[in-house]
Nucleic acid binder design. Sequence first.
DNA 1: TCTACTTCCACCTTTGAATTGG
DNA 2: ACCAATTCAAAGGTGGAAGTAG
Length: 418
Amino acid sequence: MQTLRDLKHNFSIPPPATMAGAPDPYHQGNIRMTLEDQELWKSFHEIGTEMIITKPGRRMFPHCKINISGLVPYAKYILLVDMVPEDGFRYKWNKDKWELAGKAEPQPPYRTYLHPDSPAPGSHWMKQPVSFLKLKLTNNALDQHGHIILHSMHRYHPRFHIVQADDLYSVRWSVFQTFTFPETSFTAVTAYQNTKITKLKIDNNPFAKGFRDEGTNSKRAALKESGEVKEERFSPWGGVSDRESSHVLGQDSPVGSEARDVYSSEQLVPGHSSYQPYRYPPSTCHAGSGTGSRVPDIATVPEHEGKAAAHEPGPTHCPPNLASTPQDYPGVLNMAVGQAKPAVLSHHPLYAPYGPEQALGQWGGASSAQYPPAPPTHHHHHHHHLATDYSTQAVHHGYHHGNVSDWSQYPLFSYSCW
DNA sequence: TCTACTTCCACCTTTGAATTGG
DNA sequence: ACCAATTCAAAGGTGGAAGTAG
């Protein structure tokens, strides 16, 4: 795969050491984010985390939970999560390890999960760990529930974005700070491939208690693991016996070390992805009722049930659609991403999700949202246009303790729509 | 045939409303 | 009247097995 070469290029950009130097005016520097349950994540990561994706949507396990600090207590923020491809390949599980199985499929509709508490003051987010327990992954490209759509047998990692914004409509003009944690990367699957992963899930997920062996086992008795694989601990990823995957970054690589490098880079610099501002389809542009008009419709139908309600009017009522949906969808923004190569995602639109009315369908046509040709985005352009490059991250790969978080900041929707 | 995906199921946790106790 | 603890039933999350699709 020559693609690797390409990838390399993209990734080879050295992480600008802290580029924090160029903080945006808007952003108040020092925001920090750490991953909770790191040990658990690591134990999965060492083996090669797999996340089940189903048509109706499946939760993640471990689920994403983070600690945030450095926010302005009284300022309001919106917290988002999206999943970015780890690379441009498709994989297959052969016997006891992952192997490359061709090029990645084109990106499905790109969606972003909005934390149901958004928007909320910094004090709220910092008060206790923020969990994304209800985020669900699906393989149904036509999903109407606002779940994050992924391709099975492809690798991804979650990205956490924090944006200072009073309401969803102002998100576009705000600066995003993005964090990623190498140990949270995973392979989306429709059924578990690595039995060790299955076992770890069963042993740690309370909902799977019924499958545990312990004394009282009623279900699946012996799994007989006749010796399966010996040392796999560190190497489900193919050839390379890189046991070092343990290092945070490494893990991913599928095949050879070559690939590995790529990954590493990526992790370090998560994204060179540049976000591009996206324009909404005209029609929707002004959808927003009151607020800014342009706004994306963010669909947030927060699950009401939860807690949300309290502050703020439902996220501003968004466009009709939101309101219309009765369900408790977690709020989600859909964004389309440019497809692309692994690392380069390009931009996205956000719009809203699912409402019956607007649901994807609406855009469907118009938008190219779905599989936009990846614009040749260059990374670096901060200025106007979309800019964004991620810069930096300090991820220190912290091995253990550290949490690796990288942060990058970039202005996201710099422009408004058209 | 093989691999990926879907559906259904037993088993369990979670949720939340109703009830009880102080 | 008020609030915390308890109870209980309904809702819903698990992975496995078996079936389907290609």
